[in-house]
Design a binder for these strands. Structure first.
Lengths: 148, 148
DNA sequence: GGTTATCAGTTGCTTTTGTAACTAACAAAC
DNA sequence: GTTTGTTAGTTACAAAAGCAACTGATAACC
């Protein structure tokens, strides 16, 4: 096999991810002053309700220091609150505040819209296939060696 | 539509790209002390021969300061040489040295192998379809608004 | 030919990330 | 019940990325 850039999956994935992220970034950055990791944490909490930082780390495969900083940033913006878990005082539940919830709802709408705009450039079946393959790759890699 | 994380394309792309990059990183990082951008620049030059920094910026959609630093780093490692273009003395051609070429060849082999190992978890047709869709997204986004 | 605009690439400064070492809480062993 | 190990989360320091202002060269206009 002759390695073309356009044929090297890590390269393609990086390129696509970066371009697409750059595209969606204004929504959370300009309108809510959030960083990408903050948006991701908000997203997880919005979707799943209360979680600990650890749980987010595992699910999102993001390093714990990044999560720690994102949580503090969101806390200072009054988008989430922490509560120490009495059964194990090392960990704490994270929960969106009213305004955190509002931000999540708003950004969710933007996300759905953006997702649909991407869908325009390919067929519905292709899009589903694409997502399925990416999910598969993620679950394999995540099982193999999650972010510590 | 109810927005699941697993259904949001930017999220899936990011996640996949990050996991896959982390996986391949040891090859260029541990063995050649390269950063990801350096590896990408090496890759472009290896594939396409002489190029200017500008051309790499455009093709790779990487910001020019990142390229500038990667080029300097590769130059200091004696993997590439510059030559001012006399017709337009602002720009310079970049070209791999012998050892740069050797590093590229070696890393290419690793890349092909890695690419094939990814292919194991999906059918050949699926893999081709995946790459085609990613390429399409890239070309659309790149035409829309390239990195400055 | 001189003023103004543009372009390739670099540098300086700030923000963000990565890494490793840390604190505080728990658990196991004995 | 106290040593030893582990875990959740934080912090400090170093490396990398982003951004804006810069240099030196070319082009465009008058």
């Amino acid at each position: 096999m002759n390695l073309e850039l356009s044929n090297f999956l890590p390269y393609l994935l990086n390129q696509t991810a970066e371009l697409v992220s750059r595209d969606f970034q204004p929504h959370y950055k300009d309108r809510y002053g959030m960083l990408r990791t903050e948006w991701r944490v908000l997203f997880h909490l919005g979707r799943q309700g209360e979680m600990t930082a650890k749980q987010i780390c595992e699910q999102a495969a993001i390093h714990k220091t990044k999560i720690s900083r994102a949580v503090r940033a969101l806390e200072m913006k009054r988008y989430l609150e922490r509560k120490t878990i009495e059964a194990d005082r090392r960990s704490e539940t994270l929960k969106l505040t009213k305004s955190g919830r509002a931000a999540f709802d708003d950004l969710s709408r933007a996300a759905v819209q953006y997702d649909q705009s991407l869908a325009k450039s390919m067929s519905e079946t292709d899009l589903e296939a694409l997502k399925a393959m990416l999910s598969k790759l993620i679950s394999e890699k995540t099982r193999a060696g999650p972010a510590v």
